[in-house]
Computed example of a mutant assay.
Amino acid sequence: MTKLNTYLNFPGNAEEAFNFYKSVFGGEFFMLQRYKDGPKTDGCGSAPPELAEKILHVSLPIGDNMLMASDALPPMCPPVTVGSNVSLSLHPESEAEGRRLFDALSAGGTVQMPYQPMFWGAIFGMCSDRFGVQWMVNYELPKA
């Protein structure tokens, strides 16, 4: 069954926010990756040095769910606008189901990132549906 999690974008204070959420909900970060830990080259280019310590991805388990986030900072991302800084993140059980979901949700909407292989070992895409809701589809490839 596909899982649904919440993904937040912050204007540079994701670490502060997630340390606060960790104090509220308890637990430990499942993952904390900084821009300096990301790929040196990709389709968007490398992160500039001033973003090195900012959060590329963080995730905090809350019950059976995951709260996830990043610092979405120019030039890597468009500026964060409060109200549009939340995405629903789908985690399907198969690549085909991920493709089906991505194609259906993006029909009549806008594709921000095509559903494609990514450096973290997943097939991933981002889109807004025809109602303006932002979606991420992330199928984790089986470990070899």
Rank of each mutant, 00 (worst) to 15 (best):
F124T: 04
K36W: 01
L67N: 03
F29W: 09
L8N: 05
S87M: 14
K143F: 03
M66W: 09
Q33H: 07
P49E: 13
C77L: 12
S94T: 15
Q116W: 04
K143A: 11
V111F: 03
S59E: 15
S128E: 09
G125L: 07
S84W: 00
E28T: 11
G43C: 06
G109R: 03
V137N: 04
W120K: 00
V58P: 04
C127R: 01
P79K: 05
G38D: 10
G121H: 09
S128H: 14
F30I: 08
F25G: 07
A144W: 00
L60R: 00
I123R: 14
T6D: 01
S46M: 13
I62L: 10
E95D: 12
K54F: 05
A104M: 06
P39V: 09
P79S: 10
P39N: 09
L60P: 02
L32K: 15
G38V: 00
W120V: 01
M76L: 10
N9Y: 09
L56H: 08
S46V: 04
N9I: 02
L90M: 09
A122C: 10
M113W: 01
P117L: 06
K22W: 02
I123P: 00
K143S: 13
E140R: 14
E50S: 06
V137I: 15
E50D: 14
L90K: 00
P142R: 08
H91S: 13
Y35R: 14
L73E: 07
A104Y: 05
T110E: 15
F10W: 08
F29V: 08
G125R: 02
Q134I: 05
A72L: 07
N65P: 00
P48V: 06
V133C: 11
D64R: 05
M68C: 12
G121D: 12
N85A: 13
S128W: 02
D103T: 13
E93G: 05
P74K: 06
R100K: 14
M113Q: 03
N85V: 10
N85W: 01
A69R: 12
P114G: 03
A52R: 06
K54M: 01
L88E: 06
L88R: 00
M31I: 13
S46K: 13
N19L: 11
S59M: 14
D64S: 15
G43N: 07
S128R: 14
M66L: 14
A104Q: 13
G26M: 05
P39Q: 13
R99Q: 15
S59R: 06
T110Q: 14
F131S: 14
P114S: 06
E93M: 03
G45L: 08
P114Y: 02
